[in-house]
């Protein structure tokens, strides 16, 4: 693996060394390393490109890393990864994709991740996107995440895309059974002419299921973002979506709330706030000795933390 690939790995998965636990590192469409463990089995799919990751019931405190790095210009790939998370397990899954495109052709990675979360299982899923490289070719990421949650399972998803991705369309679909709980924290920053679209479709099918989808984002320069979050409540359940955004320069943000209650005991709630950085926040930090630009940076860093 070369230096650029190592740097991308650090950005998307905080990996400095070979990770502990199970992992599969994909570099320029090839597997650059894989390890299964006693409880976590990673196997290649036969029909399409991608992995099947099977986590044994009762697996506790183990992690799976499946980072993807691309450094060849003009590469386009679609990858299908399926996760089967056994009953009662408690695991951390770290995905992420880093693209470095120095060439003039677009590089694109479309990852389709499906999670089958067993009864009572707990999953923390972290996905980071990062792009770099000065080439004219775009860095494009279109992740699709499907989550099927059985009874009393919990899934916490943290999705981060702060830098360098030109075009992204993220689709997240989730179906929750009785007592299942989904928490999503999305953080997004777009620059230049970048475009980012994030769509959620969450179905609360089971009694006492809940979803909390929160997006914090910053749109700078002439970038555009769309946050389209839909929650459907089909049982006594609770759902909350929130879009909290800062716009700068000529950035544009469109927040589309979507709540559908199909049951009288469904309780659904949506919040959206879009605006520039509050002037008094800048002023306060300037009275502490920061310049306006430094103050802006602190406010945005905090906001996206």
């Amino acid at each position: 693996m070369d230096e650029i690939q190592k740097r991308l790995l650090m950005e998307v998965a905080d990996l400095h060394e070979v990770p502990e636990g199970a992992y599969n590192i994909r570099a320029n469409s090839q597997s650059a390393g894989r390890r299964s463990t006693e409880n976590i089995e990673i196997i290649s799919k036969q029909d399409v490109s991608g992995l099947e990751i099977r986590i044994r019931p009762g697996t506790k405190n183990e992690s799976v890393h499946i980072p993807v790095v691309m450094t060849e210009s003009g590469l386009k790939e679609v990858v299908y990864n399926d996760f089967y998370i056994g009953e009662g397990s408690d695991v951390v899954i770290i995905a992420g994709c880093g693209i470095d495109n120095c060439g003039n052709q677009d590089s694109q990675h479309d990852g389709i991740h499906r999670f089958f979360v067993g009864p009572g299982a707990k999953v923390r899923y972290v996905e980071k996107h990062y792009g770099s490289g000065e080439g004219k070719g775009k860095r494009i990421l279109n992740p699709v995440t499907e989550v099927y949650m059985q009874q009393d399972s919990t899934m916490e998803m943290e999705m981060v895309q702060i830098k360098g991705v030109d075009d992204t369309e993220r689709t997240t679909v989730a179906e929750l059974d009785t007592g299942a709980k989904l928490v999503v924290r999305e953080r997004l920053m777009t620059h230049g002419e970048q475009r980012a679209i994030s769509t959620y479709d969450v179905k609360l099918n089971g009694k006492d299921s809940s979803a909390d989808v929160v997006s914090r984002s910053v749109a700078r320069d002439r970038s555009f973002q769309k946050f389209d979050a839909k929650i459907v409540g089909k049982a006594p359940c609770s759902g909350h979506t929130e879009c909290d955004s800062i716009i700068m320069d000529e950035g544009r943000i469109l927040a589309v709330p979507g709540l559908e209650a199909d049951h009288v005991d469904a309780s659904l709630f949506h919040e959206a706030a879009i605006g520039k950085i509050a002037g008094e926040q800048l002023t306060k930090l300037m009275t502490l000795g920061l310049t306006e630009a430094e103050a802006e940076e602190q406010i945005i860093n905090g906001f996206l933390r």
């Binding site: 926040q281 002023t283 905090g302």
Partner: peptide, 10 residues
């Protein structure tokens, strides 16, 4: 003034 994400220690 209140801030989102900035901690007291920051």
């Amino acid at each position: 003034v209140r801030f989102k994400g900035i901690r007291v220690v920051d």
